[in-house]
Design a protein around this nucleic acid. Structure first.
Lengths: 340, 340
DNA sequence: CAACCGCGTGAATACGTATTCACATAATAA
DNA sequence: TTATTATGTGAATACGTATTCACGCGGTTG
């Protein structure tokens, strides 16, 4: 039936323990014995039983990715698909696989974390953009569960939680300054729901970019997703005191803004400048290109996953708990006015 | 430390075997004993050890989704993200979790299938849109590995493979006829790479929709992805004998066509009609809406996953091996001419 | 020369569960 | 009453691996 270490041992005239040692690269086994065992292994094309190893070693070889589903919507934002793609690239060739966990409601989120924590189905977790003061993170931490946060752990936890993030404050500041330098007078911000750290950080950066000028009435909040952004932007643009440029929380929402502008006969970039975050493939879908801040997702993923594996394998990690991946403003047509 | 069935047994004054029986819903245990055990279980908040159960029962509780990465590109097509979303919806609350497997090159694909087959890391697989005569599928089948194909298994395997698909021939025929009835004279087709079943099926449907008129010179092939489609469409539209309508393999590619048209000053739908497949959220990104064939992904996923679980659990399945999910043409602005 | 140590290996064990087997007890049939 | 069968439960075992423990052997040290 199935080839086991016992079979290998019999064929190679050694004990099962020795076979196990050879497989785990134990240095103490003699070279000729190791060779003999390896020969048998390759000619029987033996494959280790992941279940048995899991039971014995308490490792599953699975990495969990927890993504949050926007209420009422689907995860059709290219950001998630990209994230998954890059994680799989990183994991390819390593002895780990990706298990995707989706949480929708807050209660289901509680249950999912609880289940993950109790069953230890996965060896570690990548958490994405959690909310500012997430209690669940504290539980993971208290139980010593390996995880890396992609996002901002909020100040008081910076030194105790492994996290990878962009400097969203700086990125938003830079983008805001870019809009102002491009000649826009009333630069507004379309942020996400309140209480989401990534959104709050970018609001802060926007304020800095506005360098003290009173701008609170130019900040709007809106649910994630394309439709919500389109509808909100429609209202914003209809107002007599409408902004002449909008920094938007992500590309997907920015496409909603673009549509709302078109619907009202506003030209981009002349009547309305638009810039956003993520630099996803959506940016090319706007004819002259959408100015967007690249988060450098490949590097974020490399860093986060690399660290997670080290935590799991209890190897030393150098560098600060909180890693900041540099962003890059990609200027395209949506902020390049030709009328000035 | 960790609560085991042994502990439960001790506390409830029964044997570990009885605890196991209670947990698996064995009908033979006496009601009062069952209650006593359940009481102890709930007050200790015991959680079964998935590793041990896996070793013993040969089940992992994991469903694998194999997606193919387009060469050189990323999986930023909303189609995949949608698929994952819906699969997770289906799995939520059931004792299964989703493991994503990505294959890029053909050789890695071989290796991934091989590893999955040998280690049985997952209880079953959902395969998406495989190529027409995929050898790997035969191996899975030969080894009795549970899987369901989302796509077309090609004719000679229809009766032996569980598959869920749309009637792509009919869908393409209907879309083609819609374009012709909308008043377009030279309806073309932008298909995917050769040898992909979904593409071949839609070519066939397109031909039927053109009802015999010679249309081979109106069919173009192109790699997946937005960029490739944009560049190919640019060439097509520059030709003097350009089509005045294009049926495109998917929304993502269609957005590329839209851009190419805009780049040449062509108006949609007046100068060029555009229709495509998937009915993803991208369709709303085109200002007047992109006409698209809805594949009914939620139902595809429900059917495919439901069947996969039945195969895994060896329950009876009613209905044909090949299930056809109806499509629906969603007519929007990109084919609604106002000049006729 | 004796006591000791390092090294490589096999035997034994544990991981936590599901299931088979055996064994009481109670119910039924002769 | 006795023989026979259901029935519910515990004891025992197997799943395949990783690791500890014990042991033998050659070499070093006092």
């Amino acid at each position: 039936m199935r080839v086991t270490q016992q079979d290998i041992a019999r064929l190679a005239n050694v004990s099962q323990a020795t076979v196990s040692r050879v497989l785990s690269g134990d240095a103490r086994v003699e070279t000729d014995i190791k060779d003999r065992v390896l020969a048998v292994i390759s000619e029987t094309n033996y494959q280790i039983d992941v279940r048995a190893r899991s039971l014995r070693s308490k490792r599953t070889g699975l990495i969990g990715l927890v993504v949050k589903r926007p209420p009422g919507g689907l995860n059709d934002d290219p950001f998630f698909a990209n994230l998954i793609s890059h994680i799989m690239d990183f994991l390819a060739g390593r002895p780990y696989h990706l298990c995707v966990e989706m949480v929708s409601s807050a209660s289901s989120q509680e249950a999912v974390y609880d289940e993950l924590l109790r069953t230890r189905r996965v060896d570690g977790l990548i958490l994405v953009e959690s909310e500012a003061r997430d209690e669940r993170i504290l539980r993971l931490q208290a139980e010593g569960f390996p995880f890396v946060l992609i996002g901002n752990p909020v100040e008081e936890r910076e030194s105790t939680i492994w996290s990878v993030d962009n400097d969203n404050v700086l990125a938003a500041k830079t983008a805001t300054e870019h809009l102002r330098e491009a000649g826009y007078q009333r630069v507004g911000l379309l942020a996400g729901p309140k209480g989401i750290t990534v959104s709050d950080d970018r609001i802060e950066g926007y304020r800095q970019g506005m360098s003290g000028s009173d701008c609170d009435d130019l900040v709007w909040h809106c649910d994630f997703g394309f439709i919500a952004a389109r509808d909100t932007a429609s209202d914003i643009l209809r107002s007599p005191s409408r902004p002449d440029a909008l920094l938007v929380l992500d590309d997907f929402m920015a496409m909603g803004v673009v549509l709302a502008a078109r619907g009202q006969g506003l030209f981009i970039p002349e009547d309305l400048g638009v810039a956003s975050f993520n630099d996803s493939s959506l940016c090319d879908l706007f004819e002259r290109g959408l100015t967007s801040v690249s988060l450098n997702i490949p590097q974020i993923v490399r860093t986060a996953c690399g660290r997670l594996l080290k935590i799991i394998e209890e190897k030393p990690i150098y560098g600060p708990r909180r890693m900041i991946i540099p962003t890059e403003l990609c200027v395209r047509g949506s902020t390049t006015r030709r009328d000035l």
